[in-house]
Design a protein around this nucleic acid. Structure first.
Length: 463
RNA sequence: GGCGGCGUGGCCGAGUGGUUAGGCAGGGGCCUGCAAAGCCCCGUACUCCGGUUCGAAUCCGGACGCCGCCUCCA
């Protein structure tokens, strides 16, 4: 049974699903007004790993993640570029999925777009108005946070203390400075939808609550996202559901930041690296490995050094794949459990990895087990224990794949000129012409190949 | 001001009352024509000060330092 830290209760809790054998997850997706950065990458990777692992262990996972395609930031950008909001949203949604595809993040089961759910949002706001949990002002409809007795649950603070700390410049006529806009009345030139309380557009917090309830139903299992969304976004989603008397997420989980040096990486600080910039220089798997090597709730420091470190660790995994000629594990997307038939060391490895992941998704500990096993597989092969070594290597391959980390045997195209050099070198080595063999190796390396000798002769791959 | 997190060996990073985390880098060795890959061995770390305990990096108290949330943010 998977236990996860539940942000609403501040403790580890068994993830008890509404329906046996199934898991419903909602992840707040991006507001598509700019290209994704490393923080978005971690956000996507962390929950991709959870989803993959749960799928691997036999759960049927429904994973919903939205696209916020109407928002102030999209409107502002559209105005700046003199193009439509729709054009901005489409452009950056494409950029989002392009980057996530490269990271090997599986597409969600469903990707609701806020603009397709406006009618449902209007209905929800009408309901809140009817219940007296919302009230109109001249620029929009607001939610009355005092109508939710445990408002502040996710913030970990009582309403009073939140109010005292409120830094937001507040309209005097809001009942509480923490009241938030459910609906913003239309301003000239902005996209708007009809509603009997006045034309306008939905507030962000209303979008997610509607889409989550519509696609996953009441009392769905897990709502996750970044720590920065815990308050106020998730608090406010929940508040609306509570005010409506509709059970919302059973569990809440939040992941930590990507740090750039000592600071949180964020748009507002302007210290972010885009995913495209990262992927131009690094194997996407290296970023996944780097992310997996810290606990999802801790900050992860992304620097050239930590990336290089992850790349070299990845090279060891690939070397294992080469040695045992392992087949790619992700050919069909998700790896589904094949661990039941495992015996011996492979079974023990699976148990150990599962124990780590079951305890709040402890990926760093699980990876440590995989690396232990990697050494063990190589050592056994060195000793000539081919069978057990191979079984273990294959288990490592499958388990890494279950985390979305695919081990790869390089399949570089080898051009005729290179083949010629390789053959010449093998010939020289056969005749024990060592200096000639070394010259040819240097030539190959100058052409960008990594050269290794094996029992089958010279093997090259792209450095 | 309120709330929360963190401080582990050269670097990254788990753990959390007694037992090797793991990776990267470094040193030594084996293998190899030499390399590469791989294997073996090695460093014996937990911010500081008190306390609890047979025993604390791990619990409690305090100090110092760093970070975050309370405003858009993954």
């Amino acid at each position: 049974m998977l236990r996860l830290y539940d942000s609403a209760h501040g403790e580890l809790r068994a993830l008890r699903a509404r329906d046996d054998g199934k898991l419903s997850i909602y992840l707040c997706g991006p507001t598509v007004y700019d290209v994704p950065h490393l923080g978005h990458g971690r956000h996507a990777l962390v929950w991709d790993v959870l989803r993959r692992w749960c799928t691997f262990t036999g759960l049927e996972v429904r994973f919903v993640s939205n696209i916020t395609d109407v928002d102030d930031k999209i409107i502002n950008r559209a105005a700046k570029e003199h193009v439509s909001e729709r054009e901005i949203a489409t452009r950056y949604e494409e950029a989002w999925f392009a980057a996530l595809d490269r990271l090997g993040v599986a597409r969600p089961s469903a990707v609701p777009h806020a603009t397709h759910y406006v009618d449902e949002m209007v209905t929800l706001i009408e309901d809140l108005l009817a219940r007296g949990a919302a009230y109109p002002l001249d620029d929009g409809v607001y939610f009355d946070v005092t109508k939710v007795p445990d408002y502040g649950l996710l913030a970990g603070q009582a309403l009073e203390s939140l109010r005292a700390g409120a830094r937001v410049e507040s309209r005097d006529d809001k009942r509480s400075p923490l009241d938030f806009a459910l609906w913003k009345f239309a301003k000239p030139g902005e996209p708007s939808w009809m509603a009997n309380f006045g034309p306008g557009r939905p507030g962000w917090h209303t979008e997610c609550v509607v889409m989550a309830l519509d696609l996953l139903g009441e009392d769905f299992d897990l709502h996750c996202g970044g720590l920065d969304l815990q308050f106020p976004h998730h608090e406010n989603e929940r508040a609306q559901a509570v005010a409506l008397g509709r059970p919302f997420a059973r569990h809440w989980a939040h992941h930590g930041w990507v740090m750039s040096g000592e600071e949180k990486m964020s748009k507002s600080l302007g210290n972010f690296t885009t995913l495209d910039e990262l992927l131009a220089e690094h194997d996407p798997r290296a970023y996944r490995l780097l992310v997996l090597r810290s606990h999802y709730r801790s900050p992860v420091d992304v620097t050239p050094e930590t990336l290089a470190d992850a790349e070299r660790a990845l090279a060891r995994l690939d070397a294992l794949a080469r040695r045992f000629a392992l087949a790619p594990s992700l050919r069909d997307g998700m790896v589904v459990a094949s661990a039941r038939a495992w015996r011996g060391d492979a079974a023990a490895l699976y148990d150990a990895v599962r124990a780590d992941l079951d305890e709040d998704l402890n990926c760093p500990a699980a990876l440590a087990k995989l690396f232990d096993a990697l050494s063990s597989a190589n050592a056994r092969a060195d000793r000539g224990e081919e069978g057990p070594a191979r079984e273990l290597a294959e288990a490592i391959n499958v388990l890494a794949g279950a985390l979305g980390l695919e081990l790869l045997v390089s399949n570089d195209e080898i051009d005729p000129a290179t083949t010629k050099l390789v053959r010449a070198r093998d010939k020289a080595r056969a005749k024990k012409e060592w200096s000639r063999a070394d010259e040819l190796r240097a030539e190959l390396e100058a052409l960008g190949w990594t050269v290794e000798d094996s029992s089958a002769g010279t093997v090259v791959r792209r450095a």
